[in-house]
């Protein structure tokens, strides 16, 4: 059964904070291959990190 989008977004988020296990990575990759909404979410979560890195108040 395919992973739900909600769970996929949880793994996308956690992937920014901890190394995912091999099976988590594989299942997420498979889900992303098939799901445009989750690919967009991944790009957007990554953008949030990038934006905070470049925050004008940050040094």
């Amino acid at each position: 059964m395919m992973m739900s989008c909600k769970h996929a977004t949880e793994l996308i988020s956690q992937g920014l904070d901890r190394p995912l296990s091999r099976s988590e990575r594989l299942r997420l990759r498979l889900h992303l291959l098939l799901c445009l909404g989750c690919r967009r979410t991944q790009a957007q979560f990554r953008f949030l990190r990038e934006a905070m890195r470049q925050h004008p108040w940050k040094l």
Binding site: S4, C5, K6, H7, L36, G37, R40, T41, A43, Q44, F47, E50, A51, Q54
Partner: peptide
């Protein structure tokens, strides 16, 4: 079923916003 109720929109190229 915990799938998207509505497809999230694309942000195009958001870098310019920074």
């Amino acid at each position: 079923r915990d799938h998207w109720a509505e497809m999230p929109a694309a942000w195009g190229n958001p870098q310019g916003s920074l």
